[in-house]
């Protein structure tokens, strides 16, 4: 869970909990049709300018009410100061019911009740924001999962073969021969220490952005598989 989401829960958690669960990107082509409901007030695309509402280029990752050359409602300005940023979850909630998210917004639109419409519109608008392939720091285009895996693979718990596959992500940076210039060695660690350290990164108790990210998406079984692989190496 990223920092911006933590802020968002503080600011708008109440409203957020009422929003539909459709926080996925749908079909951008269908979203273009849905956008017809927005275009009398909002422009998007090359040369888009502010009209009745602000233009929507680069909306993903943008702080709310942050175009200096647009006069926002006090409600939206307050939300922006409070840390509201536009990501898939917040945009979804705003599209469903603008006034639920910012009660004083001047956006006189009742909202899109159908989750499918919102997800298609989100996909269409996404095409006018930074693409992570070109600007790697751009907003995520998938919602984080805990990487649940199917039962057949879960049965591999502690399987060193799965651990070996997973370990190939470690050896891009950590040298397999135990070298430790700039990046610590991870060979010959006791299994228990390894598991503790990985869970500490996963829970953000150990501070390192790369490791928090890498450990963050491993589930307990996967960490166990890695540990069993590394343990087998020691013998």
């Amino acid at each position: 869970m990223s920092f911006r989401r933590v802020i968002f829960f503080v600011v708008a958690g109440l409203f957020f909990s009422t929003a539909g669960a459709a926080e996925e990107f749908g079909d951008p082509v269908a979203g273009k049709t849905v956008y017809n409901k927005c275009k009398s007030c909002h422009q998007v695309g090359q040369g888009a300018r502010h009209r009745i509402g602000p233009h929507l280029n680069g909306i993903f990752g943008r702080k709310a009410a942050s175009h200096e050359d647009f006069q926002y409602s006090k409600a939206l300005q307050r939300a922006g100061r409070g840390g509201l940023e536009w990501h898939i979850d917040t945009l979804n909630a705003f599209m469903e019911n603008p006034r639920a998210l910012a009660s004083g917004t001047r956006m006189s639109f009742k909202g899109l009740k159908k989750a499918e419409d919102r997800s298609n519109l989100l996909a269409y608008l996404r095409t006018f924001s930074d693409d992570p392939a070109n600007i790697p720091e751009a907003d995520p285009t998938a919602t984080p999962t805990d990487h649940d895996i199917d039962p057949a693979i879960l049965a591999l718990e502690g399987d060193p073969e799965y651990g070996e596959y997973l370990s190939s992500e470690c050896t891009t940076c950590h040298q397999a021969d135990g070298g430790d210039d700039g990046i610590p060695s991870i060979v010959l660690w006791p299994e228990e220490d390894f598991v503790l350290a990985m869970h500490a990164y996963k829970n953000k108790k150990r501070a390192h952005p790369v490791m928090q990210m890498m450990a963050g998406r491993l589930n307990a079984e996967e960490i166990a598989a890695l540990a069993s692989y590394f343990a087998a190496l020691e013998q």
């Binding site: 790697p136 919602t143 984080p144 998406r217």
Partner: peptide
């Protein structure tokens, strides 16, 4: 960033 395979593409998860 980390990424996962979706039916449509390799999608960014976190960064």
């Amino acid at each position: 960033a980390t990424y996962e395979a979706t039916l449509e593409k390799i999608a960014k998860v976190d960064g």
